Amino acid sequence: MSQMTSEPDSRRQTFMQNLNQLLEVARMNRKESAETIGVPYKWLRRMVSTGLVRSDERNLADLQKVTTFFAVPELDDLWRPHLVCWLVESDSGEAFWDKFEKNLFSIWSELEQALRAIDQQLLRTLRWHCRERSVSDDAIAFHPSSDVVSDEEKVQQILASDKADHFKDFINVYYEAITSSIEQSKTA
Score class of each variant (00 low, 15 high):
L159P: 01
E183M: 05
T36F: 07
R133S: 07
K42Q: 15
Y41N: 12
Q120W: 08
S181C: 02
S161I: 02
V155M: 11
I182W: 07
K163S: 15
R124C: 07
Q3R: 06
P144T: 03
T67M: 04
L115H: 11
S6E: 08
D169H: 12
E101V: 01
P40H: 10
N29P: 01
E57K: 11
A114R: 12
R46T: 15
A188C: 03
E32I: 01
P40T: 03
L115Q: 14
D62A: 14
R27Q: 14
Q64K: 15
G51P: 13
S181M: 03
I171W: 13
I107C: 08
R131Q: 08
D119H: 10
S145C: 09
P81C: 05
I158G: 09
S2R: 06
E152V: 05
V25F: 12
A164R: 03
D77E: 06
K163Q: 14
I107L: 14
A34P: 01
L22Q: 00
E132A: 11
Q64I: 04
H143M: 11
S150E: 11
E132S: 09
A61S: 13
D62V: 03
P81R: 06
S181W: 06
K102R: 12
I140L: 14
E57G: 12
H143F: 14
Y175Q: 01
I178H: 03
S2M: 04
K102V: 09
H143K: 13
D119T: 07
I118R: 10
Q120H: 12
E94N: 10
W97I: 11
V148D: 14
F15S: 03
V155N: 14
A71M: 09
F100W: 02
E132W: 07
N103L: 03
R116N: 10
A114K: 07
K163T: 00
D147E: 09
H166K: 07
R54Y: 09
G51L: 14
T68M: 06
